[in-house]
Nucleic acid binder design. Structure first.
Length: 250
DNA sequence: CGCCAGGTGGGAT
DNA sequence: ATCCCACATGGC
């Protein structure tokens, strides 16, 4: 764990060189005047100011809940349904019947659970004018909300409010585990501390780094079949070192 | 078909 | 603290 520090910057550089800026968190329909600042899916490359509106911040929080253990492609279509039906507002979520809300978000999975979670998130974020951007809910407040765990709290802090909290997800665990830098079962805060200790606390950096890990995990570091050919971080990886030194494959 | 997807809360140990 | 499980749909 001691040696991760130097290599973590290298890991970021290799991922950045391979995949480039990721434009997270996708937020639908943002424009400045007549000029689109997002692509069709809501990504906004090298724009670290977005979201900059209450609606945008709320959409990120909703997306963070809906994507829990769920493919983003499913979430994206649900965000579209919610937007079309004008549900991307806390008061609308709070006023909705659970069954109606559940029906709208059905295709994102766990819809009964997530309907309840969205109401909790809406209740929290409609307080204190947090969505207006004058103040930011504390991590403790977020975690005290039923339905918001550590990753979701950090996703909201980082991607809705631009606060430097590194997001640790299953991909992060898998990648650091494969690299041989971690066992992979360490508690969340321990993995997060590695990033917080060794990187400048800049939201834009944490934004890209987490998004790059996700992209890399999807393209090369797959769950059951890692595609090590052409992997941009081979040279940092235990598997590669073991191959070259003739040790057995894991 | 089985596996995977940008987790969380509740309950038992 | 740590493990185990329910929660659920859609894509490949």
């Amino acid at each position: 764990v001691k040696n991760i520090g130097k290599k973590i910057g290298l890991l970021y550089d290799r991922l950045w060189d391979a995949y480039g800026p990721q434009g997270w968190w996708p937020v639908t329909g943002r424009r400045t005047g007549s000029r689109a600042v997002c692509d069709a899916d809501g990504y906004h490359v090298k724009n670290y100011v977005l979201p900059a509106t209450p609606a945008g911040r709320f959409e990120v929080a909703v997306g963070a809940v809906l994507t829990q253990n769920t493919a983003w492609t499913n979430v994206r279509s649900v965000i579209g349904f919610l937007k079309k039906e004008k549900y991307l507002h806390p008061q609308k979520i709070l006023a909705a019947d659970l069954s109606v809300l559940g029906g709208l978000i059905r295709s994102s999975g766990y819809y009964n659970e997530k309907a309840k979670k969205l109401k909790q998130v809406a209740a929290l974020l409609s307080k204190e004018k947090w969505l207006q951007g004058k103040a930011v809910p504390s991590r403790e407040k977020l975690l005290a909300t039923w339905g918001i765990g550590e990753e979701t709290a950090d996703s909201i802090l980082l991607y809705a409010f631009h606060r430097p909290f590194f997001v640790v997800d299953a991909y992060t665990r898998r990648l650091l585990g494969r690299l041989g830098w971690l066992g992979g079962r360490e508690p969340y805060h321990e993995i997060q501390a590695i990033f917080h200790r060794r990187l400048p606390g800049e939201a834009a950096l944490f934004n890209e780094f987490h998004a790059l890990i996700v992209e890399h995990a999807k393209q090369h570091c797959l769950k059951n079949k890692p595609l090590c050919g052409g992997c941009p971080v081979r040279s940092l990886c235990r598997r590669f070192r073991e191959d070259r030194s003739g040790k057995r494959e894991q």
